[in-house]
Amino acid sequence: MTDTFVALSDPTRRLLLDRLSEEGGLTLSDLSEDLPMTRQAVAKHLAVLEAAELVASERDGRCKRHYLNPVPLAKMARRWLGRFEEVPLAAMSGFHGSAGEARAARTETGAGSAHS
């Protein structure tokens, strides 16, 4: 999963994924259009995406076509975001600030003290 986060950390790689989600089967030339970088730089970004299994590629004669693989994204969403969808907003209504402020409030009231 670390590879997924690394791959998604770069805005150019996110743009490439956006393009592949709109239209799969794009070649390196297709993906390089309108980008302010060389085809070699785009190829390096694609290699990172392929290593993270976010992009799958297949040969079509002399062309290599690239496709979005949504499975790692779905796994990440399920693991990291899914659990927050089930949290009722009412449960968060008592949240007043940072963890440091909460500790300070507990200490002042004696709720967090081991000597109580």
Rank of each mutant, 00 (worst) to 15 (best):
4 T>N: 07
6 V>T: 12
9 S>Q: 14
13 R>G: 08
15 L>V: 02
15 L>F: 07
15 L>S: 12
16 L>R: 06
17 L>C: 06
17 L>W: 03
17 L>S: 08
19 R>T: 04
20 L>P: 02
20 L>D: 00
21 S>N: 05
23 E>G: 00
24 G>A: 02
25 G>K: 02
25 G>L: 15
26 L>C: 11
27 T>G: 05
27 T>Q: 05
28 L>E: 06
28 L>Q: 10
32 S>L: 03
33 E>F: 04
33 E>Q: 14
34 D>R: 11
34 D>C: 01
35 L>E: 15
36 P>C: 01
37 M>D: 01
39 R>Q: 15
40 Q>W: 03
41 A>W: 03
42 V>L: 04
43 A>Y: 13
44 K>D: 09
45 H>Q: 14
45 H>C: 14
46 L>E: 11
46 L>N: 10
47 A>V: 07
48 V>A: 14
50 E>F: 01
53 E>L: 08
62 R>E: 10
63 C>P: 01
63 C>A: 12
64 K>I: 11
64 K>D: 03
64 K>N: 01
65 R>W: 03
66 H>A: 01
67 Y>D: 09
67 Y>P: 03
68 L>T: 04
68 L>D: 03
68 L>G: 06
68 L>I: 11
70 P>D: 11
70 P>H: 05
77 A>D: 11
77 A>R: 12
79 R>F: 12
80 W>Y: 12
80 W>F: 13
80 W>E: 15
